[in-house]
Design a protein around this nucleic acid. Structure first.
Lengths: 73, 73
DNA sequence: ATGTGACTCAGAGTCCGTT
DNA sequence: GAACGGACTCTGAGTCACA
């Protein structure tokens, strides 16, 4: 499984843990709802700026976020 | 200091610690030499794929890489 | 509330050389 | 060996209608 798919899975997991819909995560992160959908499916090779915005909204540090991602291997 | 600048500083630090030139890091990571230069100066908003390739060449996990980045704040 | 296809366009990423 | 520049190509960012 590649990195961007793992990334999507972790984002989805964190979003659900906070009881957020894709739409509200999208609004809070100032990202389009359909773009969030693509990210969670692992279909986008996202950049540092997007990663940062998501981690802020989900209230997780970048190192903790990537630690979770690594646990998927 | 923004995230991409901190990212660049950490990459440079790790590269020097391994005794690599920008050119050899570029070659081993299959990234353009001039792009490495820009990244280290914090002038590029790089994607997940590039981040992954750099971490592989520099032999550091993504979570450890971002932990170092967070230490710059 | 989420998925998909199709789109635009700024910027990610490359290649050449010169300082 | 690294920074800088111009001139590229290609893909990520961002949006929309529709299912």
């Amino acid at each position: 499984m590649n990195l961007q798919r793992k990334f999507g899975l972790v984002i989805k997991e964190l979003r659900l843990k906070k009881g957020l819909s894709q739409e509200s995560l999208a609004n809070q992160s100032d990202i389009d709802r359909t773009y969030i959908s693509d990210i969670e499916k692992g279909e986008r090779n996202i950049s540092l700026k997007i990663i940062e915005r998501l981690s802020e909204t989900l209230q997780i540090s970048l190192s903790e976020l990537f630690k979770k991602i690594e646990e998927y291997e």
